[in-house]
Lab assay of single mutants.
Amino acid sequence: SDEELKKRIEELVRRGNKDEARKLAENANSDEARKWWEKLEQL
C-alpha cells in the first residue's frame, strides 16, 4: 500500500539512505510515493 511504502521511504531517508529511498519511490510506480520522496528530500 502507499502508506506502507511512504513509511519505508521515510525510514530510509531518516537513516541517511537516500539513494535506496529514491529507488524505492521510483520503482513503486506510485505518484504518491514519488511526491512523498520529493518532499522528504527537501528536508
Score class of each variant (00 low, 15 high):
S1T: 12
S1Q: 11
D2G: 08
D2Q: 10
D2H: 11
E3D: 13
E3H: 10
E4W: 13
E4D: 13
E4A: 10
L5T: 03
K6P: 00
K6G: 03
K7Y: 07
K7P: 00
R8H: 07
R8W: 12
I9S: 00
I9C: 06
E10K: 05
E10V: 05
E10H: 06
E10T: 09
E10D: 05
E11V: 04
E11S: 04
E11R: 03
L12F: 04
L12W: 02
V13S: 02
V13F: 15
V13M: 15
V13P: 00
V13I: 14
R14P: 00
R14D: 05
R14S: 08
R14F: 11
R15Q: 14
R15W: 07
R15N: 14
R15F: 07
R15E: 13
G16H: 02
G16N: 03
G16L: 01
N17H: 14
N17Q: 14
K18D: 05
D19V: 05
D19R: 04
D19K: 07
D19I: 05
D19P: 02
E20D: 06
E20G: 05
E20P: 00
E20A: 09
E20W: 03
E20K: 03
E20S: 02
A21L: 08
A21N: 00
A21M: 01
A21I: 03
A21Q: 00
A21D: 00
R22Y: 09
R22T: 03
R22W: 13
K23I: 10
K23V: 09
K23C: 08
L24V: 07
L24T: 02
A25D: 01
E26N: 06
E26Y: 12
E26G: 05
N27F: 12
N27T: 13
N27A: 14
N27M: 14
A28L: 15
A28I: 15
N29P: 08
N29H: 10
S30R: 04
D31H: 08
D31T: 08
D31N: 06
D31P: 11
E32T: 08
A33K: 02
A33V: 15
A33T: 14
R34F: 13
R34G: 03
R34M: 14
R34Q: 08
R34C: 13
K35T: 11
K35L: 13
K35A: 13
K35V: 10
W37L: 15
W37S: 03
E38I: 09
E38F: 05
E38H: 07
K39P: 02
L40T: 03
E41A: 14
Q42K: 13
L43K: 08
L43N: 08
